[in-house]
Structure formats: C-alpha cells, structure tokens
C-alpha cells in the first residue's frame, strides 16, 4: 500500500485553505533518491554527477515523484528553490517536462555573487531560456542579504529582459538573541528592497528566511504605493539596502582573476 505523500497532503491542505480559487504553488526543496532506492523527500546532501555520486536519471526520477504527487494534490505550479548547480536545475527541468508541469525555479547566489557551485546570474538566465520547457519564472532566493540578491536580479533581467523574474531575499542575517534565532532585517528595509526589486525588473517579489508577516505586509504596501522608477544602479542599492558581500557578482571578464596563477601547461589535454 502506498502511503500518503506529504507533498500531496500539503498541496491539498493549501488548496482547501484558499478555497480552490487562488493559484496553488507548493515549494519543493532539492530532493534526491537515496542509495537504497527509497525515495527521500528531503535534501540528502548528495551532489550530482560529475562531482558527486547522484546520477541525472536518479535525481530526475526523485523530482518526478514529488511533482506527480504535488499535481495530484492540486498544485498548479511547481516551485523549486535554493538550488545551486546546473545539474540539479537540469534534473528539475527534465522532471517537470516529463510530467508536463509548469514550474518556477530559483537558485541561491551566495558565494561571491555566484551559487556555491559557481553558477552566475547571466549563465543561469541563458540556460533557462534555452530549455525546450523554460520555467514560467526564474530568479534568486535566500543567499546573502537584500543587496546581493538585487544585484543578481539585475544580472538576470539584464541577460534576459523578457524573462519573468523572481526575487526572494532573506530578511537580514540571523542573530542569536536569548536562545532564539532572530533575523535583523526590518520590515522597512524589506519594503525598500521590494521597490528596488520591482525597478530592477522582478515581477514576483517575496521574502525568504526571516521574513515574517510584518515584512510581507510592509512589502505589499510598498509595492501597491510604488511608482516604478528606472533600473537601480549598484550605488543606489548599496545606499538603501547595505553593502554587498563581494566586490563583483562573478559575471563578465574573469581573466584578471585567472592571471593570478601562471599556467605551467597541462598534461593529457
């Protein structure tokens, strides 16, 4: 007997709660299939080939199982986020294609402007646009603060102006106060971030870690009252949302970085 799948259950609960009128999108985190053949519904920490042991076929199968369950439960859109590698995104896209499911996908750009696997905003935008089943929307979530995320949004909208772009920044950084974790981003900061995200070309704007009802409320009010402005420059972002965590966003010419190391020639090229 097949046990009730948590994703299907979740999708049904959400649809019930909103009376079946609102679009239901259920967020699914990166998942993988464990070596013993048991589908795992949480990230296993496995890396995909070629740097890790998880095959494209296994990852795709695991995502497909989740997607099928979510659709069965009433989800309209599949939403994959906090991804870091091209291979992982490829598996989600393949699974969505196999299940004919519309999907959105965001990566987490948290390492010197790139994802931890080295993917740039530009490269991601180009990759998504070239798919036979491009995502409904692409973008960035989580990562390292509002300023960095806005810089990533500029990178994506710059590379693919026609794309529908998602911005979901964390509400500041987590602090440990009286034994509890508390994010230090204020609703006011998130409201200003939302305006900047809109001007940067994002059309789906939200929060990630640390965003509570007060933040979301402030963002909504800010966007409703917002008169769209020109694309913000990096200086403006820095002035309004704080400094970036890295000097560049990792796009463009990296030959300067490469030249730090003089090549001795490669064997067996």
């Amino acid at each position: 007997m097949r046990a009730e799948l948590p994703e299907a259950e979740l999708a049904r609960l959400v649809e019930h709660a909103v009376g079946g009128e609102t679009l239901v999108a259920v967020v699914t985190l990166p998942a993988a299939r464990r070596g013993d053949g048991v589908p795992a519904w949480l990230p296993t920490g496995e890396l995909l080939e070629p740097v890790g042991p998880l095959t494209h076929a296994d990852a795709t199968a695991a995502f497909e199982e989740q997607i099928a369950a979510l659709i069965e439960g009433g989800a309209d859109v599949i939403w994959a986020e906090t991804m870091s590698s091209v291979e992982e995104f490829g598996a989600v896209a393949a699974a969505a294609a196999n299940q004919s499911a519309p999907f959105c996908a965001t990566l987490s750009f948290d390492t010197a402007g790139r994802t931890m696997m080295g993917v740039t905003s530009e490269a991601y935008a180009a990759l998504a646009a070239a798919l036979p089943n491009p995502p409904l929307a692409i973008g960035a979530n989580c990562g390292t603060g509002a300023s960095d995320l806005l810089r990533t949004v500029l990178g994506i909208t710059g590379a693919t102006p026609e794309a529908v772009v998602i911005a979901k920044a964390n509400a500041g950084i987590p602090k440990f106060v009286d034994g509890r974790i508390h994010y230090d981003g204020t609703p006011e900061l998130m409201a200003d971030y939302a305006r900047l995200a809109r001007d940067a070309g994002a059309r789906l704007i939200g929060g990630c870690c640390g965003s509570e009802t007060a933040h979301i409320r402030a963002m909504r009010t800010a966007l409703e009252d917002h008169t769209p402005g020109p694309r913000p420059g990096l200086d403006e972002i820095r002035a309004r949302c704080g400094d970036f965590t890295s000097a560049s966003d990792g796009t463009g010419d990296t030959s300067g970085a490469e030249s730090r190391r003089s090549r001795r020639g490669r064997r067996r090229v």
Binding site: S85, A112, M117, R260
Partner: peptide
C-alpha cells in the same frame, strides 16, 4: 582561490 571566489565547490572537490 576558493576563499577569494575564484574557484567554486566543483573545482575544490
């Protein structure tokens, strides 16, 4: 180079 954002996780692995 990993610390300085020149290499990323795949290269380091």
């Amino acid at each position: 180079d990993f610390r300085d954002g020149i290499l990323f996780v795949p290269e380091v692995l």
